[in-house]
Design a protein around this nucleic acid. Structure first.
Length: 271
DNA sequence: AAGGTAGTCAACCGCTGTACG
DNA sequence: TCGTACAGCGGTTGACTACCT
């Protein structure tokens, strides 16, 4: 038995929102809040829309703190670094960019940033004269983020694990990294976030790949952005992104939950 | 000017995780 | 413990626009 639909799709309006509907939803939320129930909201607000549609419209468009377009190079760096580490977990990536939504970041990556990354990859690793014995199809079939998009597959295929090792780079196998991320052990709670990140030696944890100092810092950055002038500054930007001031407190709470499931790992903690 | 193609982005779909009775 | 309802997420679609031939 399947789940009952959240609304009667035949009777609710679909498609683009009119300015009147936007105003209706906006004024209702401003006056009453969401009320913890999106399904019931359309009826209360007098909207002939599905609750999910209202939620999406509010979160992605009507929310007062939303920013559209005008991505900065710093934001590009953050998106790109996180994508290469955790894959297409857009909500996590968006949560590190104030005013950005997961949908917006996803669209931005798919339409602009991915091409930029692929161009950089193609320039760094020109295609061999003979066909590669390991085509993109050899990538993990379990990866929706890779296999569902030829662009992603090509982007990922541009970097083999061997190349990563040769270049001293972190791996681009997003599902693998995701698995590592979710299974990553809770780090010591006695050190602050930045110090822990710099001190961590466990290769199973992705954050040190990004924020640890020295030549390993942003290993793709030179390819992608044409060089980071001030690596220390860039490190601080990303460190601030990943590690809030109460990092030790956060990890302490996580460590206290000794029976924490693997899913309660790094990314869930950060969200 | 007209038709075709590519790019963009809002919106939808279907699935998963979680809270709750 | 199980079933249900809901929120949230990521992938995909389709309408619209810009650009090219």
């Amino acid at each position: 038995m399947g789940r009952a639909p959240c609304c009667d799709k035949a009777s609710v309006k679909r498609g683009p929102w009119s300015p009147e509907e936007d105003e209706q939803l906006r004024s209702y939320v401003q006056r009453h809040g969401i009320g913890g129930n999106w399904i019931a909201l359309p009826q209360k607000a007098g909207l002939n829309r599905c609750g999910k549609s209202c939620r999406l419209r509010w979160l992605n468009y009507l929310r007062p703190d939303i920013k559209h377009g005008g991505y900065t190079e710093q934001e590009d760096r953050i998106i790109w670094s996180l994508y290469t580490s955790i894959g297409s977990r857009w909500s996590i990536i968006a949560s590190k960019l104030p005013g950005r939504t997961d949908n917006d970041v996803k669209n931005y990556w798919n339409t602009k940033l991915k091409k930029k990354a692929m161009a950089a990859a193609a320039a760094a690793f020109p295609a061999p004269a003979t066909p590669s014995p390991q085509p993109a199809a050899a990538l993990s079939p379990t990866s929706s983020s890779v296999t569902s998009s030829s662009g992603d597959a090509r982007f990922a295929a541009a970097y083999t694990p061997q190349q990563h090792q040769q270049q001293g780079m972190m791996h681009l196998d997003a599902p693998q990294r995701r698995q590592q991320t979710e299974l990553a052990p809770v780090p010591p709670a006695t050190v602050d976030g930045g110090a822990w990140a710099a001190a961590a030696l466990d290769d199973d944890v992705f954050l040190p790949d990004l924020v640890a100092g020295g030549e390993q810092l942003f290993p793709y950055a030179d390819l992608f952005f044409g060089g980071v002038q001030d690596r220390a500054t860039a490190a601080m930007e990303l460190s601030a992104c990943y590690f809030p001031n109460n990092m030790a407190e956060m990890w302490g709470a996580a460590a206290a939950a000794s029976d924490a499931k693997p899913q309660q790992g790094l990314c869930n903690t950060l969200t």
